[in-house]
Design a protein around this nucleic acid. Structure first.
Lengths: 342, 342
DNA sequence: TAGGTACACGAAAACGGTTTCGTGTTAATA
DNA sequence: TATTAACACGAAACCGTTTTCGTGTACCTA
């Protein structure tokens, strides 16, 4: 086992000082041609690579960014992650991922774990529980230490920091408008329980579209399901007992499940009933019929978030400058497929 | 902005030495009750947390593990990742994820980036290109430095290290056997191009099952598609022109696409034609009809891989002991749903 | 020949911890 | 009272870098 070689080893072997080796490897003008060549050749021969940890300690820069997401199996979050990873990697940063699992405690623990020197900044989406509790002290802690933070998707007004979100409300509005323009009148909304910020925004877009286009809001056409619902009776009963000609779902899982209920009832999609979902993921693309869906452009969000974070990390700003925050809105787009008429 | 406090600050403030502070915070017997209480109270008041980087440098232990996967958006890899993250986190480790994007070069770069002190060990699945090129020098490099490595799913016989795989061949065998037992005679195989190790294993299971059960192997019933195929003509034509009563697909995307082709042709699933896929992911669960699928238990694989890695990291072994490697086989199980008759 | 100036390099501090070993003070023992 | 042991703490080395500052040598100039 060939152990890692250090500056000290090279220095001893070549009978020079550590400083000389360090400078020689950085091609410093201070060192003579001969010495540099000798040292560089030796370093190459023994495959010298500087120790990242030592450099981090010295520079107080880890070149790591911490990403905390509620759930990594969720397609949307993975696409965001991919965007982050891609940009960060290109900039020489590594990404440490922690999963909060929608739990407040885990979120806190993970943040504290990473905040003690392991990372240069955070990118995160709040856990459902955190949004529900409305407790953001752990976030403030971290920010007070001067660690940059970018929130994405699951954000909170109470936290002032850089943010990347999509225009959920407008996207929902436009989706419903589309349905209305297609002549639909009895448009249902399938959403989650209300503490999830994004669902709430989408719901508001839905209501607004109805109102502005002369359709009465009918609470009877709104179904609120638990976030991770497994049993289907509730949604099936909903469809069985109502006369509906279009549906907006706040995610694609709800959408494909509900399409099934509609089909079971004998309805044809999109002739009798149209469906639009959110999160243009793998389910939307492969559903039968293919699902028209609001694309949230997770890759883009991740990329923008990473860019904002790294900009802040690498810029030397005064405290005041650092405390001016931006919110970037990523435009959601409607990807039309077979579940709506064109 | 309240900057992070260090041992030095505490020492200065309380007029003791740094060593005393360090010991007091570790509750060392060496320090008097009074002093310890004073120091601990002060540390708590100012929310002292030791700097991870400094500890890493001192201990030559980062408590980070590096995970390199070909693609994080792929459902199977995310479940493996979740298993890794969960176990690692419980053991106090953080996970640095890099995506090789199926590229050999990225895989090499990522490994080298992490191997210089950033992590204590690797968990990885080989990129398609790496398997194709059969070049594993970067892996050997890392292993020679004494960095523990666990390969999962995409492994290679040429590399001797700890491994976690599923019994792909047997799983495919059993799936096909199941179809045969259900009276199916004309069983097709939809697979990828052959350099992907796992697809090959599954194909072998398919062939073996046919042979051992008296069914002739018909190469005409085997379709090899590019790994990320987008256009569907080829697969659609395949179904249109053949008489098939069952299909084994090496992943769930192929399966749902092919189910569509069959339905388009007017066939009923599972009455006229059965389908079994691999990767029991979100598509299998929500397909219409729900897809019978071979579950690879990614969570379990990840957990086992993390456990093997951390065991090796934390055990103090002689070089010879460290060089005895294990291969753990995770049993794939067939999850029966609507696409096969029961 | 004395003084100045590049030049090439080394010593040492610093980053923030851990840990070994030494030492001054006090109390217990012979 | 002299010796010793326990106690409580500090000095310093160390992990592997970077970087500032100092210095010896050689050469050039007046």
């Amino acid at each position: 086992m060939r152990r890692k070689i250090t500056l000290k080893h090279i220095a001893r072997e070549l009978d020079v000082s550590i400083s000389t080796v360090s400078k020689a490897l950085k091609n410093s003008e201070e060192i003579s041609r001969d010495t540099k060549e000798k040292i560089q050749a030796f370093a190459k021969l023994y495959n010298y690579k500087p120790n990242n940890i030592a450099i981090s300690l010295k520079n107080k820069r880890t070149k790591n960014i911490g990403v905390i997401v509620p759930d990594i199996v969720h397609h949307f979050f993975t696409t965001v992650f991919r965007g982050i990873e891609k940009y960060a990697n290109a900039k020489g940063y590594n990404v440490i991922v922690c999963v909060s699992d929608e739990s407040f405690d885990k979120e806190v623990i993970n943040m504290e774990m990473l905040a003690n020197g392991s990372i240069d900044g955070f990118i995160m989406a709040l856990s459902a529980e955190t949004q529900f509790k409305n407790d953001f002290n752990h976030i403030r802690e971290v920010m007070e230490q001067g660690i940059p933070l970018v929130l994405f998707d699951r954000v909170a007004d109470e936290i002032s920091c850089d943010k990347v979100v999509i225009n959920d409300k407008e996207a929902a509005y436009r989706a419903v408008k589309k349905l209305i323009d297609n002549g639909r009148k009895k448009i249902a909304l399938i959403t989650t329980e209300s503490y999830l910020n994004v669902s709430e925004k989408r719901a508001r877009g839905y209501f607004l579209a109805l109102e502005e286009n002369g359709l009465a809001v009918d609470e009877n056409l709104v179904l609120r399901l638990p976030y991770q619902f497994e049993e289907e009776q509730e949604s099936e009963a909903f469809f069985a007992s109502r006369d509906i000609d279009a549906v907006l779902c706040v995610n694609e899982i709800f959408a494909v499940r509900c399409m099934k209920h509609a089909q079971k009832k004998g309805l044809h999609i999109p002739e009798d009933i149209s469906f639009i979902g959110f999160t243009d993921g793998i389910l939307s693309r492969f559903a039968n019929p293919r699902l028209t869906s609001v694309a949230q452009h997770g890759d883009k969000m991740g990329e923008v978030a990473a860019q904002m974070l790294i900009d802040k990390i690498e810029s030397e700003m005064t405290d005041e400058e650092a405390e001016t925050y931006r919110t970037v809105i990523i435009e959601a787009t409607l990807v039309e497929r077979e579940s709506t008429v064109n």
